[in-house]
């Protein structure tokens, strides 16, 4: 079991490496992305795609309202004290040994960093008026 676990971690690491070596930055599913700049964040259409991804797909484990589930809560209260860089890295590479998968093929590093900033300051739009 230990050996198998190690293989899996290696596989995940390899996947990460492959993505770094070929940084096309072409998210597999989310197309129609605009230009991303560090200062302004992704273009508005891309922001909406990222928030939808966060709500629906990250939300499968973290809750659509980000209050947690199989994965921990992603509310501002839960995240503000955690280092932003390691959170970005967790999104991109996942956390081996847990259920957190790598999302590198769905977003660029700067997009992940933008999501982390929004999560930490609690400015992700609510899914509805409630």
């Amino acid at each position: 079991m230990c050996v198998r676990l190690r293989i899996r971690i290696a596989a995940v690491a390899l996947l990460g490496t492959a993505a770094v070596l070929a940084p096309a930055g072409a998210p597999a599913q989310l197309t129609g992305a605009g230009v991303t700049t560090a200062a302004a964040g992704p273009a508005p259409a891309r922001q909406r795609e990222l928030v939808a991804l966060l709500r629906q797909d990250c939300g499968a484990c973290h809750g659509m309202r980000l209050t947690g589930g199989l994965g921990p809560p992603l509310t501002a209260e839960a995240l503000y004290a955690k280092p932003a860089d390691s959170m970005t890295e967790t999104i991109l590479s996942g956390r081996p040994g847990t259920a957190m998968p790598p999302w590198r093929h769905f977003m660029t590093e700067s997009e992940a960093a933008w999501l982390v900033a929004r999560l930490r300051n609690g400015t992700i739009d609510a899914p509805d008026s409630r």
């Binding site: 293989i7 899996r8 596989a11 995940v12 996947l15 797909d57 499968a60 259920a99 998968p101 790598p102």
Partner: peptide, 8 residues
């Protein structure tokens, strides 16, 4: 290698 699991 197991693929990343995006939904349980």
């Amino acid at each position: 290698a197991r693929l990343p699991v995006y939904k349980m």
